[in-house]
Write a protein that binds this DNA or RNA. Structure first.
Length: 235
DNA sequence: GCGACAG
DNA sequence: ATCTTGTCGC
C-alpha cells in the first residue's frame, strides 16, 4: 500500500499534481466478487483543537449488523481546501484502517468519489491507496450538474460533469435534501447506488457512514475534546 | 471578473 | 467539520 505519511509536506499545487497522477489508475467497473461485509468511515474534530479522530465501522451485508470497529487518533497535518479533502483526512483514516483486524469487502466514505473536478474525491483516493472497492456518499455537492430529484424516497437524478456521468443525486428520504452518490474505485455507478439504497434505514444518511459518524464523535467526547479549551476567552 | 466551493 | 434549543412543517 502506498505511503501516505508525506501528505503533510505537500503544497496545494503538489497535491493537485498527485491527484492528476493517481487518477490514471481509477477503475470504474462492476464489482464481481460477492459483498458480504461493508464498512463506513468518518472523522471528527473540534475546531479549537488540532486532533483528528478517525473511525471505521464494519457491518455484515445486507443485514447491516455491526461486526467490528477500529479507531485512530492523530493530528491535523493539512488544511481543509475544497477539492483536496483527501490530503487532510486520509492519513488518519489509514491509521484506523491499519487497526482493523478484518478488512471489509467494500467501504463507504463521507464525501465524493469521482464526482470531483479531477475525479479524485476522498472515496476514490482511499480506494486507490488501499485497493479496497469504495463508494462516496456526500451530504452536499462538489462537482456535477443535475436536475432536482422528485420529492419521494429513492427518487434519483444523474449528475454530469464535463460531459460524463459522475454520480447520482439520491433522495434517500422524502422531504430531505438528496445525498450525492458516486463510485470511488473498483465499482460501477449503478452498483454504488444500489448498495447505498440497501443501506438506508430511515435516515437521510446511509447506515455505514451514519454509524461511523456517531462513533468518532463519541470517542472525541470521551477523549475530553468536546469544547473549547478556554470558553469565550477570545470571543 | 464573478460565483462556487466535499468535510 | 463543530457550536446548540427550540421550533416550523409534514
Amino acid at each position: 500500500m502506498e505511503d501516505v505519511s508525506g501528505y503533510q509536506n505537500l503544497t496545494p499545487a503538489q497535491a493537485i499534481d498527485h491527484q492528476q497522477e493517481l487518477r490514471k489508475q481509477i477503475s470504474i467497473k462492476e464489482l464481481n466478487t460477492p459483498i458480504r461485509t461493508i464498512a463506513g468511515a468518518d472523522i471528527s474534530f473540534n475546531k479549537y483543537s488540532d486532533i483528528l479522530y478517525a473511525g471505521i465501522v464494519v457491518f455484515s451485508y445486507p443485514e447491516l449488523k455491526i461486526i467490528g470497529t477500529a479507531t485512530a487518533i492523530s493530528h491535523i497535518t493539512f488544511p481543509y481546501i475544497s477539492g483536496l479533502l483527501a490530503f487532510r483526512e486520509i492519513p488518519a483514516l489509514i491509521d484506523a484502517w491499519n487497526n482493523l483486524i478484518t478488512k471489509p469487502d467494500l467501504m463507504v466514505l463521507d464525501g465524493q468519489g469521482i464526482a470531483h473536478e479531477r475525479r479524485m474525491g476522498i472515496a476514490t483516493h482511499f480506494g486507490l491507496v488501499t485497493g479496497v472497492p469504495t463508494i462516496g456518499s456526500a451530504k452536499s455537492r462538489l462537482a456535477g450538474r443535475f436536475d432536482e430529484p422528485a420529492d419521494r424516497s429513492f427518487a434519483e437524478s444523474p449528475m454530469y460533469d464535463k460531459g460524463e456521468q459522475v454520480g447520482v443525486a439520491l433522495r434517500s428520504k422524502a422531504r430531505c435534501n438528496p445525498i450525492y452518490i458516486s463510485p470511488g474505485h473498483n465499482i460501477s455507478i449503478q452498483q454504488s447506488v444500489d448498495v447505498i439504497k440497501n443501506c438506508i434505514r430511515g435516515y437521510r444518511i446511509p447506515e455505514p457512514t451514519r454509524q461511523a459518524h456517531l462513533l468518532v464523535n463519541k470517542i472525541r467526547i470521551e477523549h475530553g475534546d468536546g469544547k473549547p479549551a478556554q470558553p469565550g476567552l477570545f470571543d
